[in-house]
Amino acid sequence: MHEMSLVEAILESLVPLCVENRWRKIERVVLRIGSLRQVIPEALVFCFEAASSGTPLADASIEIKEVPIRQKCASCGLEWEGEVPLGRCSGCRSVEVETIAGLELEIEALEVLENGDEKG
């Protein structure tokens, strides 16, 4: 259950950002999460709802964009996508494979409500 740790990290980074920019609140958080990261989206949303109350992110919705695992062979240049990472290139059998996507844990974008200068 590292989802709670991720949520805490998200709040620790976004609450100050919200204050600095004088936003009224953050309404939507878009995350990019690599499939290798073993994050359960429902668990993350559940933790977020519990932990965000009382912060400017209290009513924010979470959008999770899952990034598939993508690997590249450093020997022959072959690239592929898959559900599980491979330890060996299926083309040339080299073990020099790099994971080029699937490890993301990123805050990509936000939708924020600005502090308008409305009267009353």
């Binding site: 990290a9 009224r24 995350l31 844990l105 990123e106 409500l113 600005e114 502090n115 409305e118």
Partner: peptide, 17 residues
């Protein structure tokens, strides 16, 4: 009051990293 989209592109674990 308007809703605005802001790009962030920041690692979630930036502080711990």
């Amino acid at each position: 009051m308007a809703t605005k989209r802001v790009s962030v592109f920041k690692s979630v674990l930036a502080a711990d990293e």
